[in-house]
Amino acid sequence: MSWLRGILLGCCAIFMAFSAAAHELDPGYLDIREIETNTYQVFWRKPDVRGRPMPIEVRLPENCTPQSGPDSVSDGTAWQSHWVAICDHGLSGRYLSVDGLAYQKTDVLIRLQALDASPVTKRLTSTQTTLLIPEKQSLLQVGWTYAVLGFEHILEGWDHLLFVFALVLLIRSKRRLIGAITAFTVAHSITLALAALGHVSIPGPPVEAIIALSVVFLAIEILKREEAKLRLSERAPWMVAFAFGLLHGLGFAGALQDIGLPEVDIAMALLAFNLGVEAGQLAFVGVVLAAGYVLKGGLSWLNMLSVRLLSNANLVAGYLIGTVATFWVAERIYGF
């Protein structure tokens, strides 16, 4: 079984490396609010990369003083700075940019709030680092921005993806798998909406730790599975998926609350973000199922070796998922 231990250790190292690198994909956030005519409160949040702020800097239009703010200060998860800028003749029709974004893999979400207009939400990427500030934004533009944000958030959320991956491995019936994923979707949609609208408020760190524990639970279920006897999580997986989906929804809401919702188009932004999350989740499940089908077909010609590999696949996956999730639990509890 030395080969099995080797695969397990190698996969654990890869997953932990992805976990550590995930912060490099966290989006930046820029909030500009007009507090008096031509006077703006600026909030700038940069992702943390290995204990240091990501090397990106916002540059306001040339008619603003100052164009950039003070040095960022860490809040434990990201780097923030606040300042007040005076922008003669306002911001509409002006250009702002994020220096250094072209060399990063992340995005920056920008929210602009004028005194006499609806909020405008825009997104800058490594291929588009400059924004022409518009006077107003259409409902469809708001929807598209938040849908893309939701899609990217789920694909960067390794704990959420690992939970879904464990569901795929655990549930052998396609009908039960569809029911479980549907229940997971319904549950996290409920808590996402409640938390994002301010009706439910739970501190983020405990929620993140419990989300990691939910992945540990599924890993244990995978390891204890027996061919002749279905466990509760296999007989009624929708119950488990719904219960833990409520917690995962709070995790999604935490990311959405950091970004903020447009005051006028809250319903559209919330719906679009949730649809983006679901699209990302379904895309991930599709890739996993396709990869499993290809792998199983590719091993079929190896006869006895393929039987041995496939019989140990769930064992390897269970220990891998459990090890990575336990690491997350310890890391997040330590972060309290």
Score class of each variant (00 low, 15 high):
G69E: 10
W83N: 06
R123E: 07
V148T: 11
G143T: 09
E152M: 11
K136M: 14
F163E: 03
S81H: 03
K136A: 15
H153S: 13
Q141V: 12
T182A: 03
L169M: 14
P61K: 11
L109V: 10
C64I: 07
A85Y: 03
A117Q: 11
V168D: 08
S138E: 12
L162K: 06
G93A: 04
I110A: 05
T65Q: 13
K105E: 05
V168P: 00
Q104F: 03
I110V: 15
P134C: 08
G157H: 05
S173I: 07
C87I: 01
I178K: 01
V142P: 00
N63K: 15
F163D: 02
A117F: 02
S81Y: 02
A78P: 04
L169F: 11
A85I: 04
Q104P: 06
V98Y: 00
V73F: 07
V84L: 08
L167I: 05
V164P: 09
P66V: 09
F151Y: 10
A166C: 06
S68Q: 10
H89L: 06
G93R: 02
Q67R: 14
T121M: 11
W79H: 12
D99Y: 04
W158R: 08
G157K: 04
P66I: 04
C87Y: 03
C64V: 09
T182V: 02
Q67T: 14
F165S: 07
Q137L: 15
Y146H: 15
D159K: 07
L170E: 02
S173M: 05
L169D: 05
G179I: 01
L132D: 12
A78G: 10
H153N: 15
S97I: 02
S92W: 00
Q80N: 14
R176P: 12
S173P: 02
S138F: 00
S138L: 09
A114D: 08
P70S: 08
D159A: 03
T121R: 01
T106S: 09
L101S: 00
K105W: 00
Q67W: 05
E62P: 09
F151W: 12
Y146S: 11
Q67Y: 04
L161G: 05
A117T: 08
L132V: 04
G76T: 03
G179R: 00
A78W: 01
W158D: 14
I178Q: 01
D99N: 08
F151P: 14
T145N: 15
Q80G: 06
T65H: 04
T129G: 04
Y103L: 11
A147M: 15
R94I: 01
W158N: 15
T65N: 09
R172K: 12
I171M: 06
T77L: 13
D159R: 08
F163C: 06
S173K: 05
L139H: 07
L140T: 15
E135W: 00
S138M: 09
T127G: 10
N63M: 06
F163H: 05
L96E: 00
L170Q: 03
R94W: 03
V73S: 15
V98H: 01
W83V: 05
H82E: 14
T125H: 06
D88V: 04
